[in-house]
């Protein structure tokens, strides 16, 4: 994150964050709709990806995209620049996606049981572990992509939200705690179980292919 002493705030406090969107933002806050559209264009793809990963539905993702930018527009006068515009709108979108995910959880709960490793009585690993060698460097195999998509879609809402926000979106545990209302230890526990389950899905993919 860029910090610049030339951008000290009016009270001589710590330097403000230099936001690459600052010019468009200032114009948008002054009522320039075209400037707001410029901001939308810069951030819409990232917001769409967040919503799609969280909700696993293109229709829902498109609606979250619309809701997020309308919320951002309505709240522009209250945006004080103590975060970057991109982070702020990203957070708005995370909240919208989370609300929708939780609503869906209440309406119909279709979740797969989490896949966790198995151990013998002495606590030793019983499972065979596949070699993920070179997997990160390879172009993504279409079947592996599908296996991961299915495993991610099958995660319960509590697990998927922390996995998406931490592992895919790169938020800190504290930011996730603020958005989800869960404690940091609970978030870590869910993230660990989500990773175990996704790791198992990838492991099964390689084991089946061997």
């Amino acid at each position: 994150m860029l910090l610049d002493g030339r951008n000290q705030n009016a009270h001589g406090g710590p330097p403000l964050i230099v936001d690459p969107d600052s010019e468009l933002l200032a114009r948008a806050q002054a009522g320039d709709v075209t400037a707001f559209e410029g901001l939308v264009e810069r951030h819409r793809s990232r917001i769409y990806n967040l919503a799609l990963r969280m909700l696993n539905s293109e229709d829902d993702a498109a609606e979250v995209l619309q809701d997020s930018f309308i919320s951002a527009y309505r709240n522009l006068p209250h945006f004080r620049g103590d975060a970057q515009f991109g982070s702020w709108v990203h957070r708005i979108a995370a909240n919208h996606a989370l609300m929708r995910l939780r609503h869906r959880k209440v309406v119909s709960q279709v979740e797969s049981p989490l896949d966790e490793p198995t151990f013998n009585d002495r606590g030793s690993l019983v499972d065979e572990v596949s070699d993920f060698k070179d997997a990160e460097g390879e172009a993504m195999d279409a079947e592996l992509r599908r296996a991961i998509e299915q495993a991610s879609a099958g995660l319960g809402a509590d697990y998927r939200e922390v996995f998406v926000l931490k592992d895919l979106e790169g938020l800190s545990y504290e930011e996730i705690a603020e958005i989800t209302g869960a404690s940091v230890p609970a978030i870590k526990s869910r993230l660990h179980r989500a990773r175990l389950s996704l790791r198992a899905a990838i492991d099964h993919f390689y084991a089946d292919r061997a």
């Binding site: 799609l52 990160e136 991961i148 998509e149 996995f163 990773r195 996704l198």
Partner: peptide
């Protein structure tokens, strides 16, 4: 996490 980021 890296594989999931790529896949999703």
């Amino acid at each position: 996490p890296t594989l999931c980021r790529k896949a999703l």
